[in-house]
Computed example of a mutant assay.
Amino acid sequence: MKEGLVIKSTGSWYTVKTDDGEVHDCRIKGRFRMDGIRTTNPISVGDMVEFNQDKDSNVIVKIHDRKNYIIRKSTNLSKSSQIIAANIDHAFLIVTVNYPLTTSTFIDRFLAAAEAYNIPVNLVFNKVDRYREKDLVQLQELKNIYQNIGYKCFEVSAKTGLNMDVLKEEMKGKINLLSGHSGVGKSTLINLIQPGLDLKTGEISESHSSGRHTTTFSEMFELDFSGYIIDTPGIRGFGTFDMKKEEMFHFFPEIFRTSKHCQFHNCTHMHEPKCAVKKAVENGEIAESRYDSYWGMMSEDEELKYR
């Protein structure tokens, strides 16, 4: 029996790296399911596993308990999710104000999902070298919103190398997840952070202002300056999996902090009178965009959220 870290997953085969640096291709035997998680992939990048080694194939027989994981909607219409990665120390959401547009709704759903699974997140605003005046205004507005909540924000440029040294320092010695829409420059940034990987990058579709998918599965790469970086497929949307509606406000830190002043302990912050959260939105203390995202997630139909 050997033990190792899953550094690559293609859905049917898993690449596992052991402590001594050996790399093994492994498979799973039969139907390997995780209790309580409706997922299309029982094992993900970042998992610690045990496997039996023989001359024909290596078979994973055990998954160690995860400290966290993050999921996205499955690409099909089933009520299933796909685990993107597990045991993450830090997540970096790559955001572009333009080329292509990352909406605040998408940002808020990602942040809520990360909060639900206890994953610290930094926001990385890429392609700032291309921004026009109106883009720079929007960038500052977004940074103000998220920095006031408590999220670190970085302005970077994969083209000029702006603040790449700062990102490296943040990632040092950690297992880091990079995520975001297709086209925001994840692969280009990773190639700069860890030279020599030569990850495939894609062009932006001018007609749709969106990126083409260049990564189809998550993969983990070792960093020269210590730590790991996980490249993920471009993500179009997040469902509210495993999030109970009565707990949804817990995953919006500023709403959670304000909620203690509400008249009712079970306030949903939607319809109740003397709601401190609604008052804070009216007063500009909580951003309307954040409250709109919360409202949207609370109003989401149980069936439609998987579609």
Results as ranks from 00 to 15, higher is better:
K2V: 15
E3F: 11
L5F: 12
L5E: 05
I7C: 07
K8A: 08
K8M: 12
S9E: 05
S9D: 12
G11F: 04
T15P: 00
V23H: 03
H24S: 15
D25H: 15
C26G: 13
M34A: 14
G36I: 06
I37S: 12
T39Q: 14
S44M: 03
V45T: 08
N52D: 14
Q53P: 00
K55Y: 04
V59H: 03
V59N: 04
V59Q: 09
I60S: 03
V61R: 14
H64Y: 10
N68C: 09
I70P: 02
R72W: 10
T75L: 09
S78L: 05
S80Q: 13
Q82C: 10
A86C: 14
A86N: 08
N87C: 00
I88C: 03
F92N: 12
L93S: 05
L101R: 01
T102G: 02
T102P: 00
S104F: 05
R109S: 01
F110L: 14
A113R: 07
A116H: 15
Y117R: 09
V121D: 13
V121C: 14
V121R: 07
N122E: 07
F125W: 14
N126Q: 05
R132Q: 11
L136Q: 14
Q138R: 10
K143I: 10
Y146V: 05
C153G: 08
V156I: 13
N163M: 03
N163T: 04
M164F: 12
V166L: 14
K168R: 09
M171R: 11
K174D: 02
K174S: 04
I175Y: 02
I175A: 03
N176Q: 03
S179C: 11
G180R: 07
G180Q: 13
H181A: 11
H181K: 07
S182N: 12
G183I: 13
G183W: 09
V184K: 15
L189W: 05
I190L: 03
N191V: 06
N191P: 03
N191H: 05
I193H: 10
G196S: 02
K200S: 06
T201A: 02
E203Q: 11
H208F: 13
S210G: 11
T215I: 10
E222I: 07
E222F: 06
F225A: 04
S226W: 07
S226V: 13
G227N: 05
I229G: 11
I229K: 10
D231M: 01
D231K: 00
P233K: 03
I235A: 01
I235S: 04
G237V: 08
F238Y: 07
M243N: 10
K245Y: 08
F251E: 08
F252I: 11
P253I: 11
E254G: 05
T258M: 09
Q263E: 10
H265E: 06
C267Q: 10
T268L: 15
H269A: 15
H271V: 06
H271Q: 06
H271C: 00
P273S: 02
P273F: 09
K274W: 00
C275Q: 08
V277E: 14
K278G: 12
E282C: 04
A287Q: 13
A287Y: 07
E288W: 05
D292E: 14
G296K: 10
M297Q: 06
S299F: 00
D301A: 00
L304W: 01
K305Q: 04
Y306F: 13
R307I: 09
